[in-house]
Design a protein around this nucleic acid. Structure first.
Lengths: 186, 186, 186, 186
DNA sequence: GTATAATCGAGACGGTACGTCACGTCTTTTC
DNA sequence: GAAAAGACGTGACGTACCGTCTCGATTATAC
């Protein structure tokens, strides 16, 4: 093989990208700054990624920050509570929050980032299906309940509360959300 | 009174601001372009608003785009369905969607816009309370149900589905959401 | 009499003008700053003086900084030495140097200031004539010597040395200048 | 060699600079106008010169306008008369006057221009020394006469007469100056 | 081992928009 | 009804990044 699949210092570039994103936010994320911090020439960045968003998308995909772990606690309530907790952590932990909120809420004007978001949520959903399969097998879930709807309610409430309403989402809130969703779906 | 409460061409400025926002999106919204389109000098904008966000916030507050109408259909289900429909419209109508998504999803890095969002949602909530008061009076709502939680689930699911998951949210979806929330709360 | 010959706070304005000139130099002398410092509205300045230069000219004329004292020491050499010393002081003293160098070297592009300079030097010359009249009466001066030429040589050498060549002009230099001029003219 | 020693269109830039200086005078010399006229972007100018004065200094040094030719007529009087004439021409010719007066009389507040003036006059003086060496060899000059003093008197008188006093300096004046200086120095 | 591609670094550039300053004019209020 | 206050259009400032280009220099693979 002759052609690389990315620049030689890809790791340093991705690291610099995410650091700068976390430090200064999305729109102060400057390609020149990424180049400077990662010790790479600006030209190199443009050679490999056509835009800031494409670079950011690559950095995110590479980072594993968006990796989802799916719980298996033995009950639907336990699983959903665990999922809710992880969503909450994703949105509040110092490590992930800046990156996640900066990129996933990027409006439909940024095709590359929208792709990242779409595939992130699609991937999540695919991995969350087993939770509902197991719950159905256990008889914890009414037939005909749409798992996607359940996740929309669950995740939506947490995102909404935290990012739009600007409120808190303590353990009590998470439990209430799960229980309300469950009693509507079980 | 000696001092004005805004520039003389405030209306033209606000209009230009929202137009350009809708046309090019948040980060291509250039103050120079607003000035040019509204027939005002750039310095005048800076005299009155310290930043792009402050200008945008003022334009939004002035526009009435974020005004909320609260339904009173006679039943909780009818009211919630109407609310859900209006949220959906806010997020998809050609007139409001660009503005709303561009500003309300602005990350926590933009204090002025966050303020707009906060007060928008707080105001909404205050106006939505009567829906729940009436429902309680009618016996349609279990005692102890938190209206805010209900709205988080309802609105969150729609936002999540439309903006993050990038999916559709047809009438069926809205009905399902309302019914699931209701059967969990009533 | 109803019409004033200047604004009520003329003194404060002139003072502010000269202070700012001395502090920041000619081209950072801002009318807005003069207005601010003298507690007067910018409009008032424009009402009375059409330009920065006109204001400055008025301030200078009012200040007395350009007043010339003519010595009478009893000998031509003594008088010229005294004149030379005063020119030197005018160009170097902390009080006068900034103002004088800033305004009198203003190039021909500034009509108002050129007027100030012209009348300053014309006035000087008129007052210096008696030195030469007395010298002629004392027989210290050859007939036919042009006093203006003598002053051009004397003053020119000092200006040139100090401002253009950027050199020093100590007492020895002044004496040498006077003596050379004298031996050429006496 | 990899690094350039100036922008690619340096010549056009210098030309535009001096033209605009001559047309509008020092303080209306705008960097944006230089950029526009020379077909270069504003940022390029700022990349190479930190200030208007630095640019102007470079343009002047490059122009050769300040080049001094030293005469050798065979007599001190002839040489000095030639020098005087050239100084006069420098200060009055349509080509050089605007540039020279605008820059060389720039007050001590402009370090970059002061440097130009200093080195211009220092260079002149170095080249004028031979005039006096030859005169001494010919016995036309008293021993111990300081050539710098002579030049201060000569040049000073002309500058003073023309720029400060705002007068004329015809051939007669130049002759008188030279003769007075000479009879004081020879 | 060395040719020969791919990759990179360095430097310069035109360009857009920024946020600021001071100008000089004009309108509006106030005394 | 004159003077002050305030808002404004205008031009230029100096800066930050953008995205592009041209060259040499450096690495690697592949012969």
């Amino acid at each position: 093989m002759s052609t690389q699949d990315g620049p030689r210092k890809a790791e340093a570039i991705f690291a610099a990208t995410l650091e700068l994103l976390a430090e200064h936010g999305y729109d102060k994320l400057a390609i020149e700054a990424v180049a400077a911090r990662s010790g790479v020439n600006k030209t190199t960045l443009y050679r490999w990624w056509p835009s800031k968003d494409a670079l950011l998308a690559a950095a995110l995909r590479d980072s594993g920050l968006l990796t989802v772990e799916i719980p298996d606690t033995g009950s639907l309530r336990g699983d959903l509570l665990a999922v809710a907790t992880r969503i909450h952590r994703l949105l509040t932990s110092e490590r992930t929050a800046p990156v996640v909120t900066a990129t996933l809420t990027a409006s439909p004007r940024r095709p590359e980032l929208v792709d990242v978001a779409r595939s992130f949520f699609a991937d999540r959903m695919a991995r969350e299906e087993p939770i509902f399969d197991r719950a159905t097998a256990r008889g914890e879930l009414r037939a005909g309940v749409d798992p996607v709807l359940v996740m929309d309610l669950l995740a939506g409430a947490i995102w909404f509360r935290l990012l739009l309403r600007g409120g808190e989402a303590g353990p009590d809130f998470l439990e209430e959300v799960v229980d309300t969703v469950l009693s509507g779906a079980a």
